[in-house]
Amino acid sequence: MKKEVPLIITFISGFLLIVALFIPHEPFGSLQERFNDWYIIVSGFTLILGVDSLLLYHWRKIKTKDKDAPYSIILIITFITVLLWGIYSGVKHGNPFAPASTFLRYFYTYMFVPLQATMFALLAFFIASAAYRAFRARGLNATLLLVSAGLVMLGRVPKGEIVVPFFIAITLILIAIIFVLEAVARVSLYERLLYFALALISLIAIIPLSILLREYLPALADWIMNVPQLGAKRGLFIGIWLGAIAMAIRIILGIERTYLK
């Protein structure tokens, strides 16, 4: 019975919610909203369990004199201070977030919001380091990623089309240099001529490519975003939603029971 009852509840709830999607009439119409309300009530109670877990975790560290115990002491002191401060401001102003509340001004505006912003700001540096790794042209796929990302970035920034001729010129000159070095290193005359020809083509391509991209770069960036990028994304979405439906059916039918154990 310990498992059967939750399985029956899951089946009925899942089935009712699917039915409710197609029947706007009451009592089905507001079923999802009602279920969400119940979920919020239940999760409100589990928050007490969560706080208990957090405090217990840090209390254990203090008790066992763990090397990280000082952090745990700070956490518990901060927790109690914020809780009491919030209650005090709530009682005094009717709401801890009232404009005149010291809790809002000193804790929320001057401490909590800047700390959140600091964490979020770290993303800028992490994006740079991740992009460096992702954009290294190690193979054909990475090179395609690098080129398309470069084009989209230049196509989306203000005045990107002005920068693009310089970007193209530098890139193609570098490619030409690589071809020339390859040509010098080769022994066969045929190969040497081939690499010299490739270097020459790279140099000749600078002007027409610059003119073309200067004219059509924003359109090209939009095309990359709206056609190959969106196509791949939609493919992913179809797979994800089909997977989600399959998983939901497994849960409703009681095949998938991980959440029960």
Binding site: L49, V51, S53, L54, L56, Y57, Q116
Partner: peptide, 8 residues
């Protein structure tokens, strides 16, 4: 354990 209900 439960850590925090705030994203960052």
């Amino acid at each position: 354990f439960f850590l925090s209900y705030d994203q960052f």
